[in-house]
Amino acid sequence: MADSPNDAAAVGSGPSTRPAAEVSRSKGEPVHFAGEAARPAGKPARLAGELELRKISIRFGGLVAVSDFSLTIRGNELVGLIGPNGAGKTTIFNMLTGVYRPTSGQIFFCGRPLGGRKPYRVCQLGIARTFQNIRLFKNLSVLDNVRIGAHKTVTYGALSAVLRSSAFERMEREIEERSRSLLGIFGLERRAGEIAGSLPYGDQRRLEICRALASEPSLLLLDEPAAGMNTSEALGLMATIRRIRDEFRIAILLIEHNMEVVMTICERILVLNYGRTIAEGTPEQIQRDPVVIAAYLGEPEEAVVEAGL
């Protein structure tokens, strides 16, 4: 907000090409994921955008799904959102992205109120997301999925497309290059021509992140990106996510059930239960918090074992 005027301006001035430059820089280089990539030396972390949720609540009929939820994300933080099923995590994502409208409370992104904006506008402002139940464009190619992710960066009109103008040619080439290099980050470049629905489950989740990144967000919302993966796969994915965060300098808000994953990667964690925040803090604080253990994990011993803590 007040302390990030540059960012508001940057986002407001239309789609920035910054991440694109980042990606094309790494293009052609072999991509490997040994542990977490360090933040490129010498470059100060840039504020990517600030998200502020002020006491948002939503009611469905008589059910209060989320109540008085507040959250601020600054710079390129990596924040985890955990809680039992039905705690309201995905609902928060849906409010953030304009799918649902909060019954009360306000949402600010880079100082602008998001309330009432349609999902596509929210995306254009720089918030991208993935879905818990994978919503790829199943019958389109992997590459097309990512190219659609880049939709908000398209400036040529329909007439330009029909006449195959030079602007069209240039932009299409650029989008394709950028999409391919994004696919490269997730090891999917060789699958570019395949139909998205035919990918194995884990790759579909990766592709969804890829597609979201193509929209050049400054905040990325990941809804259970590691669901259905085993722990080693999940940790590999998290390393990638962290790398992305560092390289693209974006903030990430993450919903995840795999405790080991969340505790390893997140810098800050919020615990949600019955639509309310019951704890907030670093992974260490959360792990020790008796309220979390009692309310969220239920019977202490059993649940802790189950969660792999």
Partner: peptide, 24 residues
Amino acid sequence: SAHGRAMMAVREDEIAAEAMGVNS
């Protein structure tokens, strides 16, 4: 073109298309 891809995105999954910045 990108416009055609956006149309197909709407066909495939309107909610995902909107989330990707497509004005469905």
